[in-house]
């Protein structure tokens, strides 16, 4: 019995080691969205391309969409834009854009220069909807199902790998359900 007690420090050290080891390689800046499983917050914004047109959370109803938060002030958004265009054109993904804290003319210039992958783009110059969504750094990409429920969030650039490994499985899963 005494002998066994002597092993306690070893066991404690090994346990602590395993706990710490599990944390290695995890990116602490990736936070899970507080909105997973909840509906997209209610909003009313104008269409970036048609200033007179009011849009609300109904734009997500009916089919699975990606919601991409972007702005012309965000260099990483430029990096991912090509991939978004490819997803929209070749993979048939419906992408809703949220133009976040930006200026309309700059955003329009950007879309005409780099191509427009968005089925529709919401114009959020004050960042109000971005705030309600818990956006803390563009670009962010959400998977929204056909009922307007947030299913996944990716913070950072969307690459082909991110699409294949993170976004596509979620998108396909909810497409099958819907």
């Amino acid at each position: 019995m005494k002998r066994l007690l002597l092993f306690i420090p070893v066991i404690l050290a090994v346990t602590l080691g395993m706990v710490l080891f599990a944390g290695i390689g995890k990116d602490p800046s990736h936070l899970e969205s507080a909105l997973i499983g909840k509906p997209v917050p209610a909003f009313e914004l104008t269409n970036l391309l048609a200033p007179g047109e009011q849009l609300d959370e109904q734009v997500f109803k009916g089919q699975v969409s990606l919601l991409n938060v972007w702005g012309t002030w965000c260099p990483a958004c430029r990096d991912e834009h090509g991939e978004l265009v490819r997803l929209a054109r070749s993979e048939g993904v419906r992408i809703v854009g949220l133009n976040y804290k930006d200026q309309r003319d700059l955003a329009l210039q950007w879309l005409s220069g780099l191509g427009n992958p968005y089925a529709v783009t919401l114009y959020d110059p004050a960042g109000r909807v971005g705030f309600d969504l818990g956006v803390y750094g563009a670009p962010e990409t959400y998977v929204i199902d056909g009922d307007g429920i947030v299913r996944f969030r990716h913070v950072g650039v969307v690459t082909e790998q991110v699409w294949r490994e993170l976004l596509e499985p979620v998108v396909r899963q909810y497409q099958e359900q819907g």
Binding site: L31, S33, A34, L35, F131, L133, G134, Y136
Partner: peptide, 8 residues
């Protein structure tokens, strides 16, 4: 704020 950004 937690509703938007999480317990974090």
């Amino acid at each position: 704020l937690i509703a938007r950004f999480g317990e974090f």
